[in-house]
Nucleic acid binder design. Structure first.
Lengths: 374, 374
DNA sequence: ATGTATTATTGAAACGTATCAATATTAAGG
DNA sequence: CCTTAATATTGATACGTTTCAATAATACAT
């Protein structure tokens, strides 16, 4: 009942404390016979090493922490999957915490991860205009995901401006003449998408652009209402192309238009903008771009490992007495405090001609299976 | 650079170690002035309590661990969300680990959580015929989710048999005469669904039932191929109703049938069976049942808390010298080692008449917003 | 055999906190 | 102002590991 400790194992195997510890951490330091004896004792007693004690004594935990703002958005899941596979590839574990749209909870989890001696932390911060880097002087590597900031630190984000440009150019390449952008610009990422779209709009003065600054980014229902309304506009005035700022919105817009009796994309074409695989999994062939969450997670972990490696190198130099070399390394780091990685979006043109919107179910496309996202 | 410890804070605030500890854990034991002094010192030094040390010294961590087999299935996410909200309600945190379909990794995370002094662990074990309870004699509460087993322990699962019955009866109530069940029976849960369907089949001998034991549960593409094939069968022989064992499969089947030129549900109706919200989010109004993942997560946490409370009560009794009372409690527990909770599925009849399958976009239904699942 | 080089094993000293009995401080009552 | 009760604060101890210098046990060459 009482916890089985390394002591108990040592006693049972007739060896010392240190030997049991070695059996766990440096098995090759032991003679095969001893190792076997210790292992037998461990399994007989059902020994489970106390991770708290290990970390306290040993320093670092071979895991990363990932704090997500929510669990039920495809983008965050892609991040989690990308981060997880990259972490595993390097022998690290990944623990995920859900801040559940709550700033306080986000802070709590961040502090928890820091206190737990994690090897590093990834955060996809809660969106909001007032974003500031969480955490002060950091005892451990941190990488911010899906966020832009002028602050020093490590950041990995989608190039939202490029995303906007991409999708707007796509619309124009399909001969759209009246384009309506749908969605409230409620956070910097969305603003950047609009910025990209606007750039393109300026290049094509004969195309009519309009922005409906309404509809929450994550509510398909808002899209539905907007879609119904747009469908109700007179034929010559209503848009022939709707650019929704998010795929979830786009899904709703499509449904709204269709329920109003118009065809998509026959009467009005619709495109999304953030490559959310879950939004089109049901069979709506939505053109969109940048399903880049996976890549963001991957790069985030790479950044963490980069920081870890650098710290390790610095420490090694210092130990070798090469103090000036170490100093120059850390000075270099100080001069170059910002590390940004923009993940380039790409067009997922599942609606390569306007007509194609009608039927090209993703389930039918080999090599692209929805199951992965369900 | 070097970690700021409780010592440094104590020195800075001119108090003792114990006082700083109290400031963290029992703030009401301190005089307001002292508390303020300590808190100032903490924030000035940027103190972060070392969680490893806390747990080592103090015993338990106020968090639960959740080990999931995968992150990209809606059901697991529902579980995570249900567990998270219930845990928060009781003041606990939740850390999620993704076993990523890997038995070894699942074990690793379980061991990790046990070693981390988590207050309890939830596991949705990897599916497979050879399932056996992970973990031996457990030092901490564990609850198994979405699994059936004869072993002693705590289990929360969907009543898969009822699920099968429900969906089959639904089909028959819609006048189906030739029902084809689609999906490989690759794990006990799926077998149970078939069992439920079979029960109903026996009750209606004039209805033709057929089971195609093919199609992986999580591959829409498999469903697509099966759907195309079924659509190719002669009009009098092909099914008028397809029951897919999972919603993901059903999604594919629908696409396959439609691409073959038949209408759903006009020519062939299709229903899923596991209430995966992500599978119908795109606008395919799929009838299905039991979106019960959330409820499973919730009950799982409740079971954990129940175990914690019981242990606490037992300990209190023992301390009060009431040894015989404590003994009787634990004896009672020994005699009643199995705790099962079956979550009852319910029909999500989004296709309440066959015709309704055509158009009833969920985005249009108030009170049911997809955004939540995207 | 004997001494030396190599490899295994040992056990004491951290790691940073919570706990709790002991002590010091404050408040209350006369 | 003194006594007693209540409340704050202290600091030694324990938690279960890892680490590392010291020691013991081998293997190897002579």
């Amino acid at each position: 009942m009482a916890h089985v400790t390394i002591q108990d194992v040592a006693r049972k195997a007739h060896v010392s404390l240190g030997t049991v510890s070695n059996a766990i951490n440096h098995p090759n330091k032991l003679r095969p016979g001893t190792l076997a004896r210790v292992r037998d004792a461990m399994s007989e007693l059902g020994f489970l090493p106390n991770q708290s004690a290990r970390m306290l004594a040993g320093g670092r935990n071979a895991s990363f922490g990932l704090v997500l703002p929510r669990l039920d958005h495809g983008f965050s899941l892609q991040i989690a999957n990308g981060a997880h596979s990259e972490a595993r590839r390097h022998g690290y574990g990944l623990l995920i915490a859900n801040a559940d749209e709550d700033l306080v909870l986000e802070q709590d989890y961040l502090r928890y991860f820091m206190g737990t001696q994690m090897s590093g932390i990834l955060v996809q911060p809660l969106a909001g205009k007032d974003w500031a880097p969480r955490a002060g002087a950091l005892p451990i590597p941190v990488v911010y995901l899906d966020t832009h900031s002028k602050q020093p630190g490590y950041f990995v984000a989608v190039d939202n401006v490029a995303q906007g440009r991409l999708i707007a150019e796509h619309a124009i390449s399909l001969q759209a003449r009246r384009i309506t952008v749908v969605g409230r610009a409620e956070d910097p990422n969305l603003e950047r998408r609009i910025e990209g779209i606007r750039e393109i709009a300026l290049k094509y003065p004969d195309v009519v652009f309009r922005h409906l600054d309404e509809g929450a980014w994550n509510l398909a229902r808002d899209g539905y209402m907007i879609g119904s309304r747009l469908a109700g506009e007179p034929a010559g005035e209503r848009p022939d192309f709707v650019l929704a700022l998010t795929d979830v919105l786009a899904t709703g817009v499509i449904a709204g238009i269709q329920d109003a009796g118009l065809s998509v994309p026959g009467d009005i074409a619709v495109a999304g903008c953030d490559g959310n695989p879950l939004a089109w999994s049901g069979g709506v062939p939505l053109t969109t771009c940048a399903p880049a969450g996976y890549e963001i997670g991957r790069r985030g972990v790479q950044f963490l490992i980069e920081q870890i490696e650098r710290a390790k190198a610095e420490k090694t130099l210092t130990e070798q007495g090469d103090v000036e070399a170490a100093a120059s390394m850390s000075q270099e780091a100080d001069e170059n405090p910002c590390h940004r990685s923009l993940v380039r979006p790409f067009l997922l043109a599942r609606q390569s001609t306007v007509q194609a919107n009608v039927r090209s179910n993703p389930a039918a496309q080999p090599g692209l299976d929805l199951g992965t996202y369900l």
